[in-house]
């Protein structure tokens, strides 16, 4: 299998068949918390794509040249979360200086990304799956794209849920979760979907 085909398969898997939110259950908190409006959902999604791509690259390099080289792989969790926290902080400072408009748009979502399990999840999964550097970065970015797809789709559903008439106990989160369940059901159609 040529490299291009392999990368294509990884991307398609990360976006559809193994969507981070709807199939792997990573990043549910922002998915529920920030999906009330389509604009903010899109902003969050873009921030996540950016950070997931960067985090994949950074953690892969740290793992390969620091942890594996020094035989410290058992420290992965601690080191990765620190790398991600530092990275998010750095991205925040950089955007504030270089692209204030984007920084304004992302607002509070940037710091929140540190505790998004999709980011730490992608770093750990890259190592678990034994991906190379390029594959890791592609997996990170397309995983973020899958996240954005799910959160943007869901935000438009959610806006309608706000006004609907339902039993009092189901108002708010329960109804949102059930709607998310139906969305997950539709994404299940992609599972078992093999490209080559």
């Amino acid at each position: 299998m040529s490299t291009f085909v392999l990368l294509f398969t990884i991307s398609l898997n990360a976006i559809l068949a193994e969507n981070f939110i709807l199939v792997k259950f990573l990043g549910i908190c922002p998915f529920m918390g920030v999906s009330k409006k389509t604009d903010t959902a899109l902003g969050m999604g873009l921030a996540v794509i950016f950070v997931m791509g960067l985090a994949s690259a950074a953690t892969w390099l740290v793992n390969e040249y620091l942890l594996v080289a020094l035989d410290l792989e058992f420290m992965q969790t601690v080191v990765f979360i620190l790398v991600i926290a530092a990275l998010v902080q750095f991205v925040e400072m950089f955007l504030q200086k270089a692209l204030p408009a984007l920084y304004q748009a992302l607002g509070i979502y940037l710091p929140l990304i540190t505790t998004n399990c999709a980011v730490l999840g992608v770093a750990l999964l890259n190592i678990q799956n034994g991906y190379t550097f390029i594959e890791s970065v592609i997996y990170g970015v397309t995983g973020g794209v899958g996240f954005t797809l799910a959160i943007v789709l869901f935000s438009s559903v959610r806006q309608r849920l706000e006004d609907c008439d339902c039993p009092k106990a189901f108002k708010g989160y329960p109804l949102a979760l059930i709607a998310a369940g139906l969305l997950a059901l539709s994404f299940m159609g992609f599972s078992g979907f093999k490209v080559f």
């Binding site: 709807l22 199939v23 259950f25 039993p167 989160y173 329960p174 979760l177 059930i178 997950a184 299940m188």
Partner: peptide
């Protein structure tokens, strides 16, 4: 995965 969302939704409704 679908079942996870549905079950949790119903349980939260029950708790509320």
């Amino acid at each position: 995965p679908v079942g996870g969302f549905l079950t949790l939704g119903c349980l939260i409704a029950l708790t509320q």
